[in-house]
Amino acid sequence: MKSPLWGARIGNDSMKQVVLITGGTMGIGQGLAEAFLAQGDEVAVCGRSAEALEAFTRAHPQALAIKADVTKSLDRAAMLEAVANRFGRLDVLVNNAGRFVERDFLRSDAAKDLEDEITLNLTAPIQLTAEVLERWPKPAALIFVTSGFALVSPTRAPTYGAVKAGLHGFAEGLRRQLAPNGTHVLELLPTTTDTPGTAHETRKKMTTTEVAAVTLKALARHRDMALPGPMKMLPTLLRIAPNATKRMVADI
């Protein structure tokens, strides 16, 4: 049976951050992985596709790629053990893995596979965060990739808005809880980004490189939120013109 790990072992430099990114083999996760690698950090990514993991390793042989489904407790445990064996610690966890699901509740099958959506987008990142903190109680940072839809639920995907709002609330409360330990909790609310999941979208998109740059800047400045592109205006617009903003954002 093929090993769940791809990539050769490299030496560990204690001055580097060790970063784990879920769903890090494509899209925003890959952009973040490449940004952390570019600044000299040690990076581990996980994903479910062996093909994507192998492609990532060919492009980034210095990184650790782990085959894992974050919705499965045994996979999460094995992933953290792989990080511990390779690097001895974890400094930054990026909860990025997720999926956008459109649901029309005027249809009879609206709640099909609802538990899977909630588990991947909400339950799994909370569970993984708890497991990381149990093993490494004082990480430097925890990053949660949510969405502008965490603040305004989309008409075409109300359950996606619900789970991202839940993750937003978790990050907000956790930030206060972990403040005495010095752990930075950062929430990334990406705008429409050029990824395989948005290939059908025709409106203007940011690149994953641009989103990653905004995220690392917010991390360095110890911000609560990373707000790429038009997202930087969303919290303000919701305060000064909440109804108009909600109408505009909800139907994107």
Rank of each mutant, 00 (worst) to 15 (best):
V92H: 13
H200W: 10
V94A: 12
V92G: 11
L151H: 11
A111E: 01
G173Q: 14
T198D: 02
V94D: 09
L151G: 05
G182Y: 00
L114F: 13
E210M: 01
L90T: 08
G197H: 09
L174T: 09
L219P: 08
G173I: 07
L178W: 02
V185K: 14
L219H: 07
L216A: 04
Y160H: 15
L114T: 07
T155D: 02
E115C: 14
K204I: 07
D109N: 02
F100L: 13
S153H: 14
T193I: 10
L133C: 02
A220M: 12
A165F: 11
D104V: 03
L174I: 10
E131Y: 12
E187S: 12
T146R: 00
G173S: 15
I118P: 06
A141V: 09
N181F: 01
G161F: 06
R156Q: 12
E131A: 12
K204Y: 02
D113S: 09
A162K: 02
Y160I: 10
A165L: 05
A110S: 11
V145S: 04
F170R: 05
P137Y: 00
A130K: 15
T123C: 09
Q177L: 03
L188Q: 01
L188S: 00
G166P: 13
A162P: 02
P125S: 00
A213P: 03
V94F: 14
H184R: 07
T209H: 15
R89C: 03
G148E: 12
T215V: 10
L133W: 01
Q177P: 00
P137T: 05
F100E: 04
P125R: 01
R103V: 00
G98A: 04
E210G: 06
A199C: 04
V94L: 14
L106A: 13
L114W: 08
A212N: 05
T155W: 04
N96M: 07
H168C: 02
G169R: 00
G148I: 15
N95T: 11
L186V: 15
L93I: 13
H168Y: 13
T209S: 14
R221I: 05
T159P: 02
R135H: 03
N95K: 06
D194I: 14
A165G: 14
T208E: 06
K205P: 11
E172R: 14
V163H: 08
L120W: 03
L216Y: 04
E134Q: 11
L106M: 06
G148W: 13
E102L: 09
L114A: 12
D116H: 09
A140T: 10
L167M: 13
F149R: 04
L133A: 03
R156C: 10
T215C: 15
R107L: 13
T192N: 09
N95W: 05
K112G: 02
V163M: 07
L90M: 07
A140H: 08
N96F: 11
A179R: 15
R223Y: 13
L122Q: 11
P190N: 00
V185S: 11
E115T: 14
H168D: 08
